[in-house]
């Protein structure tokens, strides 16, 4: 939602989301030739391409660039200074798996990509969505978690699918992927009352007071905003159009990308990845990324 929502890129994404760092990315490049107007985040693409392929890890410290302020992916605990969240815990687990120390570099989203280009940190783990133009300018890992619009309803609701919203009301945050998704459904003939709110939290407030029948929102935020009441609600539908979230490296840093992907695989195999996902999302949404 916040980070690089590109509806137009959805189709391209679906084809190339699992391309990974090395070989597969060329197909993504050819797919995206048409998108000449797509924004380019790299300040100097050519320099980035000229960068070496060796891991940039120095003295056994993995520096991770992250914009801390996007719950539940990365945010500060109630004390206002302890970084927590899915990305944070995953980074800690990855560093432990790789046998290196972790250093989090809190940085503004604006300029986060320039930071990896200038070696301020080795990798960005900050809910970076896969975008074809990012794939051209950076080395992206395979998808480690995917975001998708989901429909959340109370446990006793009879709504079991997006089509069941017929004759019901659904709350969304204005101008998000979820909002556009429901609007598309309405223009496609679905008769549902769309209630738009400025904040995600208000859509959930409406659900909790029973003033709407369902909420449509990003899968990664759904359980966070349900908070203590998460057990009273269920996710009944998930969009097939997923927004893959990847680790982002300086272009050509295939060595570190490969190393971290291997560590990620190890965490998945050991069940640690699923454990962290369940902690933050209420279920293991890293299990089925296809």
């Amino acid at each position: 939602m916040k980070k690089g929502l590109a509806l137009v890129a959805a189709a391209v994404m679906a084809l190339s989301m699992l391309a990974g760092c090395g070989g597969g990315s060329s197909s993504a490049k050819t797919e995206t030739k048409a998108q000449t107007e797509a924004q380019t985040e790299a300040a100097g693409e050519s320099q980035a391409e000229a960068a070496g392929t060796a891991s940039t890890l120095k003295e056994g410290v993995l520096q991770v660039g992250v914009e801390i302020g996007y719950p539940p992916m990365e945010y500060f605990d109630e004390d206002g200074k302890t970084a927590i969240g899915f990305d944070i815990e995953l980074a800690q687990a990855l560093a432990a798996e790789m046998g290196v120390e972790l250093e989090l570099v809190d940085t503004a989203w604006d300029g986060i990509f320039a930071g990896v280009d200038t070696d301020k940190y080795d990798v960005i783990m900050s809910s970076v969505s896969y975008l074809p133009e990012r794939d051209e300018n950076y080395t992206l890992s395979k998808t480690y978690v995917a975001n998708a619009p989901v429909i959340v309803v109370p446990n006793d609701s009879e709504i079991a699918d997006i089509a069941d919203l017929e004759g019901k009301s659904v709350a969304v945050q204005m101008e998000t992927t979820a909002d556009y998704l429901i609007q598309e459904q309405i223009s496609g003939g679905l008769n549902t009352e769309l209630r738009q709110y400025e904040k995600v939290i208000n859509a959930f407030d409406e659900l909790k007071t029973g003033r709407v029948d369902a909420v449509c929102t990003d899968s990664v935020v759904a359980s966070y905003y349900l908070g203590d009441e998460a057990n009273n609600y269920k996710t009944v539908w998930e969009s097939p159009e997923k927004e893959p979230i990847v680790m982002c490296f300086k272009k050509g840093n295939d060595a570190l990308c490969g190393e971290m992907e291997a560590a990620l695989d190890a965490l998945r195999a050991s069940g640690k990845l699923g454990e962290i996902a369940t902690k933050y999302f209420g279920s293991d949404i890293t299990a089925d990324l296809d």
Binding site: A171, M174, E175, Q183, R195, Q196, Y197, E198, N202, E206
Partner: peptide
């Protein structure tokens, strides 16, 4: 009233503007 999900003239205007 947009904050509680109602569509008055300003809200409709903003929605059209963004879409």
């Amino acid at each position: 009233v947009a904050i509680i999900g109602l569509s008055d003239l300003t809200k409709v205007t903003r929605a059209i503007s963004s879409s």
